[in-house]
């Protein structure tokens, strides 16, 4: 009798039951996120893939299929290839940044007064507005904006030591390093916090054991701290490579990509919006995506091995 009744449940009853509710809730709860995902991510991603084989402008009037030509342009013309080279500055810079952050984090974790004040000061730039940071560094490096003695900050410091002023942002050999410096200044705080977290999660028992064995400071770092935080170091390096491949805001605002400072992403945006070559810009977007996918793949392989 009851089994019979169950089979003849009306739609309304089914909707109020366990399964029905589950499907209804899923449908309505995911409605908005999925629509937004389609509009702002999935459709643009598919478009980007298709456009990368086309010659087209911003309005998309008469697009022309040109096969792999966009990709060939990208990898043969020095205008585009040189932006890869610029990313190498940031990659090198981020290795320096990781080493320095690790050193600072290790120091902050030792017996120290005011450790929290130091930590706070070093971390704060990470939270600051990127435009503000970029403008600050424009002034920090620029020489002689003023009429009489208003030198850039860095030159004013150097003049205290009797070193003549240098036009940092005009010298093509120096400008990229200046931008890398600004980028380290802003982002190092995050790495410091990551490393402090990793160092503090090492069990104190291990230190005591090492202490009994008479280990010195360097041995403590190399044989205990470093192996303990190696997964975080590896993760940080992967993030650093991804970051170097997609540098954008600091060079975009400080130099606008002029004077040989354009990065791959700045070039992508310029190509698509300033020169209205949407097809070529899309191809650049796809290339960056492929680079990131490869790095992520390598990262997954590495971390699986560890486990």
């Amino acid at each position: 009798m009851s089994a019979n009744a169950k089979q003849k449940r009306t739609l309304g009853e089914w909707l109020r039951g366990y399964t029905g509710q589950k499907y209804l809730t899923t449908f309505f709860f995911l409605l908005i996120p999925i629509v937004l995902l389609l509009i702002f991510t999935l459709i643009p991603a598919v478009n980007m893939f298709l456009f990368s084989f086309q010659k087209r402008d911003q309005l998309g009037v008469n697009p022309e299929w040109i096969g792999l030509n966009n990709y060939i342009t990208l990898f043969t013309q020095s205008e585009y290839l040189s932006t890869f080279k610029n990313c190498l500055y940031y990659l090198l810079g981020s290795f320096v940044q990781q080493a320095l952050a690790l050193l600072i984090a290790t120091t902050l974790c030792s017996k120290l007064k005011l450790a929290n004040v130091f930590k706070g000061i070093l971390f704060f730039p990470y939270m600051m507005n990127g435009v503000a940071v970029s403008i600050i560094f424009r002034k920090f490096f620029t020489k002689g904006d003023g009429i009489i003695s208003s030198e850039g900050t860095l030159n004013s410091i150097l003049s205290i030591f009797g070193i003549p002023g240098i036009s940092w942002l005009n010298d093509p050999n120096l400008v990229n390093w200046c931008l890398v410096f600004a980028s380290i200044w802003k982002y190092i705080g995050f790495d410091i916090i990551m490393y402090i977290g990793a160092i503090q999660s090492i069990s104190p028992d291990i230190y005591e054991a090492a202490d009994l064995d008479g280990a010195n400071g360097w041995q403590r770092f190399w044989y205990i701290v470093f192996p303990g935080i190696r997964p975080i170091v590896a993760l940080q390096l992967v993030l650093a490579i991804k970051g170097a491949a997609s540098v954008f805001d600091i060079p975009y605002i400080i130099t606008g990509g002029a004077n040989g400072t354009s990065t791959f992403v700045i070039k992508t945006i310029d190509t698509a919006f300033t020169y209205e070559k949407v097809g070529l810009g899309s191809a650049m977007g796809i290339v960056l995506l492929l680079i990131i996918l490869i790095i992520t793949g390598v990262q997954n392989l590495l971390f699986k091995e560890r486990k």
Partner: peptide, 24 residues
Amino acid sequence: IVKTIFLIVALLPSISMQVTVFQI
């Protein structure tokens, strides 16, 4: 399926994506 899509989508480089988001 939705979960997997979210995981993949998280990898897309956001600024480069604006090239095609802008037109939409």
